[in-house]
Write a protein that binds this DNA or RNA. Sequence first.
DNA 1: ATAGATGCAAAGGGTTTGCACTTGA
DNA 2: TCAAGTGCAAACCCTTTGCATCTAT
Lengths: 125, 125
Amino acid sequence: MQRMTRQREVIRDAFERLGQPLSVQEAFEAAQEDLPQIGVATVYRAINDMVDDGWLVPVDLPGESTRYERAGIGHHHHFQCNGCGRVFDFEGCPGDLGRLAPDGFEVDSHEIILYGRCARCVTDS
Amino acid sequence: MQRMTRQREVIRDAFERLGQPLSVQEAFEAAQEDLPQIGVATVYRAINDMVDDGWLVPVDLPGESTRYERAGIGHHHHFQCNGCGRVFDFEGCPGDLGRLAPDGFEVDSHEIILYGRCARCVTDS
DNA sequence: ATAGATGCAAAGGGTTTGCACTTGA
DNA sequence: TCAAGTGCAAACCCTTTGCATCTAT
């Protein structure tokens, strides 16, 4: 069974509070603000356990190390900001992508990633 | 200036012959068939030089190490086979993805990845 | 009390780099 | 000739693991 330690509490809070996909490094830095002595290995282990529990799901973007976000938010895709590098969710997606594949190929699923500038980076520039 | 060695020749040939995005490992294995004593470091260096020369471009897919393909084939996206893991190009893409982003966000570019089974894996199963 | 969690440091896996040797131009 | 390229092994970076210690339950 899973124990609720101070470490796991601050990690869980980081995901709940920030509400966006976080890398281990981002979660680690957020956790360090509340618990400076926390180690990275602890964050890796806690996050992997949360994925096994089904509380987090991995979010893989091209060329980036895996991020994680709260499970159960339904079909959606991701936006990555070219300014700050952060990742955001967005809903909606164009239907019928299957027809784009080459003849004879079967499409089961898809991924869409948008790149640009998030609202904050647009305002700041 | 760039010299044409036997090593770089077999690496270049692998990309021309196979005509699909190749990881360093895939290019290394293809090169080894013609030149068994070739080292991985050579393949890494040759590929990085070919990217610098503009002859190859990186192809990053979620959760995968970088692949590379011939530059200059125009706007396209990638299909990854869940059976054999290989990556294929496809043309066409749904217009106007920008409207999907959250309010206040600016979209500059996008990536679409389709997953499923390639023609060969569909036939084999 | 005791199994699970932690922190540290060592081990892994993939990529890059230093160096002495080889080779294309 | 001689600088670019090569192969090997060491160095790196990120992630995982082993282990002694700590701590929720």
